[in-house]
Design a binder for these strands. Structure first.
Lengths: 228, 228
DNA sequence: TGCAACATGATTGTTGACAACTATGGCGTC
DNA sequence: GACGCCATAGTTGTCAACAATCATGTTGCA
């Protein structure tokens, strides 16, 4: 009688429209890379014109960004880019520490040669982009490194959350220091190498520790930047 | 230089419309309590009539429920109540274990007398409602117990995520066994008491363990229900 | 009889205009 | 000169009608 057959997951993948997703990602990048500054207003009609999309699409986009914590929407007053306070930033990094540590504990170790070679390739690309000064593309490579690594944890919810919280903290970068300030990037490259090494060797505790301590430089940069 | 003044968080609270939130919560309850069964269709016009809301409101509601993982939306084909597979349920409980354990580790111990008395009161109310057979209200009391306890962890993101994942797994209850099958409820009441005891005594590891093992009965019920 | 193309009904996606609300600047009064 | 009121512009919230798409049942043909 109940049409509910177990182990189901209806059919195709998921998600809403392509158009909404496209605009969401575009604005995510604008915020993360500082093209949109904290407190800056996001007017529906302007966005509608810019992306050649209906205002209802923009509306859905702003709701999504609100949910993601990148913008704040106030009734009848529009949306502005969110501005996190220092205690909130600490909370965000606390969440990242929780999630990344647990993800590290779930990655099958030692990692497959396919995974290790892929991570090495991405990190090499990251290094190259940092040297050539293409900080925009470098940030993408850096994001991809962590995405690929944490996707291995086997739990898509966990991987998604890590991505979500990374986005929230990344959105703060723009106002504290330039994206990929070179000494931080150099340090990140070495830490990535260390992570790859622990994955290849099967050093679980080492990997877990690195996945947490890897965030310290950025967090410390925030702390000093907020000291006023 | 950056106009970004620190510790900010603009002004009022948050969130989108009241109307959207109301309808979202109503449908959440319908799904959690099995009034809406998995695979059941959610037609925009019907909901629009039922809640006396514009279809754009309903649209926003369905997007929110999709994001929360309670419904699945397919382009041009509408929304249906989501039907989780057993591997997915395992993943959801894995997430709950991670989050609840970490929350337990962050609750200030020993808990204040105010907290302890509040939890005792809620659990007593839960017990009373289970005895009188008001399973609907009992479920609310149960939810409130965990909400109050985990809110103490000090990180709103963590508390929110726990609530979110609780909702996802609660939505599965309806097709496996009646809400609050009495022996499970009786066991839950005792486990709540044990939790309160560890909070009052300041037994951190005990509390963390209980916050994880507390989910076992329900998870086991799912496992047996899915065995076919 | 079985299959495929088609017509129809139901539902979602889109558009544009209108209403409601908020903020800002000017005006008058004290 | 300062305060409060009001008008106006700018922006979001709401609504109803229309177009596009998908599911279903029917018909025609092999």
């Amino acid at each position: 009688m109940p049409p509910s057959n177990p182990h189901a997951l209806p059919d195709t993948a998921s998600a809403s429209d392509d158009k909404v997703l496209t605009v969401v990602q575009a604005l995510q990048h604008d915020i993360v890379f500082g093209r949109l500054k904290p407190r800056e207003r996001l007017v529906e009609e302007e966005l509608s014109a810019r992306f050649a999309a209906g205002r209802h699409v923009i509306r859905a986009v702003l709701e999504e960004l609100d949910r993601q914590g990148l913008v704040v929407r106030r009734p009848n007053r529009g949306a502005v880019v969110r501005d996190y306070s220092m205690p909130e930033i600490e909370q965000l990094y606390d969440m990242r520490a929780i999630l990344q540590r647990e993800a590290a504990l779930r990655i099958p170790l030692p990692g497959s040669v396919k995974l290790v070679t892929e991570l090495k390739a991405i990190n090499a690309e990251y290094k190259r982009l940092c040297r050539t000064g293409d900080l925009y593309q470098a940030a993408f490579a850096n994001e991809r490194f962590h995405k690929v690594m944490f996707a291995e944890c086997g739990n898509p919810h966990l991987a998604d959350l890590i991505q979500q919280f990374w986005l929230k903290t990344a959105a703060i970068h723009s106002r504290c220091y330039g994206i990929g300030k070179s000494n931080l990037a150099a340090r990140a490259i070495e830490e990535h190498k260390a992570m790859i090494d622990t994955i290849a060797r099967g050093d679980r505790q080492g990997l877990a520790g690195l996945c947490v301590s890897h965030m310290n430089p950025a967090l410390e940069a925030y702390r000093t930047a907020f000291r006023d």
